[in-house]
Structures are given as C-alpha cells and as structure tokens.
Design a binder for these strands. Structure first.
Lengths: 218, 218
DNA sequence: CAAGTATTCAAGAATATTCTTGAATACTTG
DNA sequence: CAAGTATTCAAGAATATTCTTGAATACTTG
C-alpha cells in the first residue's frame, strides 16, 4: 500500500466514524444509552423518532461500532460499545459546550430560565460528600437509577417529584442531577423546588460524567 | 425555551460540529494545520484537492470554529483555533486507531510493509531523553520543524534524507517521527534507513501529540 | 495603474443522507 | 399453531453534501 492510499484509507475510516456521530438524533440516542441499555421502544419513548427511523439510526451506530445489541425475548437491547467511546463522546460535548460560543449561550439561557445557572461541578460535589446538610437528588427514571447512580444519591424521578415534596427539609441544600449537561430534568427540578422555597442547585454534568471520572481516578 | 427545544438546539449544534469534521479531506487539512499555519496553496500542495475545493473546505472549518485565518500580503494563512480543539482531535484519532479494528488493521499492514511495526511510544521516548546512543530524527519539511519540534530532535526532511546518510552512525539507534500516527514520512524513513543497515524505529505518534502531552503535564 | 497572483464566490451535476410508508421477519404466549 | 408484539427491511421522495468549472475579488509589485 502506497503512502497516499494508506492516508486515504485512514481518513476515510475516521470520517466514517464521525459521520455516524454527526446527526442530532443519533447523538440523543447515544446520550440515552449512556444511562444504560435500552430497547428500541425505550429509545423511541424519549425522542421524537418513529420506531423504523430509530431502528435505522441504531443500525448506523452499530455498523460503526458505537453501539452493540443483544436480544432477549421479543426485545432488542442496545448499549454503548465501551467506556472508551463514552469518554470520547464526553470530550466532544465538553469541547462543544465550553468552546462553541453559540452552544454556551443557548445553555446559559436555558439555565437562566430554570434558575439553575449557579450549577455545582463534579469537583465541588466531591467536597460535599458526606455532608449532612446536602441532599443529592437523582431525578432520572428509576430504571436508570437502578442501572447505576452517584454514590449517596436518592432517587426521585422527575414525574414523582411533586408528591414527594414532604420528604425534603428546607434546611438542607438539594443538588439535583440527571443524564448530563443537556438533560433538562434537573433544570425542571431546580425550577419547581426553588419556587417552593427549597435551597436547590443542579449538578453541571450527570451520572455518566461522574462514572467516567471515577474510572479515571483509579 | 422548552426542554425539547433546548435539547434539539444543543444536539443540532453538536451535530453541526461533527458534520464539519466528518470528511476525509477536512481531516487531512486539520492534520496539516496541526503542524502550524499554512496558506491555502500550502495545503493544496500536500493533498489531492483543487484550490477552489480546498478553499471551500476551509470555509466550512472556519464557520464551525475549527480553524481561523489571517491575511498577509496576497496569502491567507489558516491555523487551528485552539489547543483544546487539537486535544479533541487527537482523542478522536486515538480512539479510532485503537478501538476500530478495521483501522488498526490497515495501520498495522502499513507499518509491516515499512518495517516500522516495532514503534516507540511517547512514554518510552521520555525514558530515552538525554541518552547519547539515541538520535531523534524529525523528517517533516523544515518549515514545520521550525514552527515547533520535539526537544532534542534533529531536522532532516524526508526528501533530503538520502544525501545525509553519512551524518548517521550505525551504532546509534535512530527514532524517526513526523506529523502523527497517519503520517507516512516516518515510515518511509524507517524503510530507507533499515535497508541501509541502520538501527531505526518510528515514533508511534508525532510532534502535535508530543506537544499536547507537554501541555498536559504542566 | 497594469499585470500577475492568491483566494473566494456562484451555479449546477453527481452523490449521499434522512425520513416515511408499508411490508416482512422473528419472536412469545395462550 | 394462531394471534400479537417488537424490530428490521426495502423503496422512494426530499434534502444536504461534494466537487468542478468559470468567473470575480483583493491583493502586490513593477
């Protein structure tokens, strides 16, 4: 193989991977799967996709070694292929959110609207661990909590939050988190709780970022 | 802004960035620019692109905040927008080369052909610094060497290598490097030199990877 | 300022991506 | 095994990307 052919083969392969990533719905699917495996139907429920279209996107992700699938009963469950990929995906997000002015602006506006501008980051969270006056609140669906969560967190899915208000003390500071920086559940939780007079902030990132950080520090 | 709108805006923005990266020629341009700034003509010289097409690709990279340009005399010089971007790009390459079996295979075949399979990595290189019996050889064009190079390296551009053979001792081990893992100059150097009976290996990565590693360790 | 050089622009053909629709397939369960 | 459910497949319309071609623009330099 000549030098030019080799280079072309490598760049073509690299471009193919990036092409597989360069679609908003596929990115959303990746974010869903970073919470744990999901069936096609499970993915469809939290996106605007039709089943057939979601399946097509999943095939593309699968052919590019981004997700893998297993079959159980009638269901096909998809999941991310490795933590190495998750780490890459999070690097992309982190870059986009901090270095692309346009995205940073959209994010800040969203957080302003939800009174969650004053977010806690993972480093700060670490200093709060074991603090009696902090309540770490996971507002993702309970399946996702069960699949994995930040140590010490309490699970109250967003749609059950209103019925559990009595469980919170107004003396404690509540830190709400969900799937990651793009996840709006934590923003909604902050909005609702702060309007009721609770001390509440959101975590800047989510469970997958915390998980990767744990892995790296070992 | 509602949750769905916010999510869509974020994923659209992210997909836009990845779309800008998902073309083999644009990736090659990025690799060129990771060696230092280049004019449009400079980029065209080492790719198969026409000037107009290279310019179009550069506009896409510029509109997506990947490269920036400055004008001097008749020339427009392009360069990467930040080291944060370079770090992201290298993460993508590293993932692709190690986790995508197809690319790993192509790479290994290329290195076999050039007798450069037994490559040195950056960590090993570090242990060799100051060793009298090692010659670190930069085979990139001299402009790129001048723009930045690994500390202690000697510059002999690939096309001048044959006329400088007498400068090398067969007792020393030669480590050749160039632009990065996809760069074939170092492979060619290993091939030529090993056929002449020199002890020679290539560096797994290239100057930009070394540079980022220096930045990270500070 | 005329001639030369580097770069960008604009339009259009060729190709690739995306989504929708209506089957087809591969299961499970009574 | 019949009926029901989850997922994939195949084809085609709508849209986006890529490259080529032939100007146009913005410089520099004698």
């Amino acid at each position: 193989m000549k030098g030019r052919e080799f280079k072309d083969a490598m760049y073509d392969g690299l471009a193919k991977l990036l092409k597989a990533l360069s679609n908003p719905f596929r990115l959303e699917i990746i974010e869903m799967l970073s919470q744990g495996e999901k069936s096609v139907e499970g993915i469809v429920q939290s996106t605007n996709l039709t089943i057939a279209n979601a399946s097509q996107h999943l095939q593309i992700l699968k052919n590019n070694n981004i997700v893998k699938s297993r079959k159980e009963k009638q269901y096909v469950y998809y999941s991310l292929v490795s933590d190495d990929f998750l780490s890459l995906y999070q690097h992309v997000i982190k870059y986009a959110v901090h270095e692309i002015a346009e995205l940073e602006k959209i994010m800040n506006r969203q957080r302003e609207d939800n009174k969650s501008l004053n977010a806690v980051n993972l480093d700060e969270l670490e200093t709060m661990i074991g603090n009696e006056n902090i309540l770490l609140l996971d507002v993702r669906p309970s399946v996702e909590f069960e699949f994995g969560h930040i140590t010490g967190a309490v699970s109250i899915p967003m749609n059950e939050l209103m019925t559990h208000l009595k469980d919170f003390s107004k003396d404690k500071e509540i830190i709400a988190y969900c799937r990651g920086p793009f996840c709006v559940l934590a923003d909604e939780a902050v909005k609702v709780l702060s309007e009721k007079g609770y001390k509440v902030r959101r975590l800047d990132e989510g469970y997958p970022e915390w998980k990767m950080k744990q892995l790296e520090s070992n």
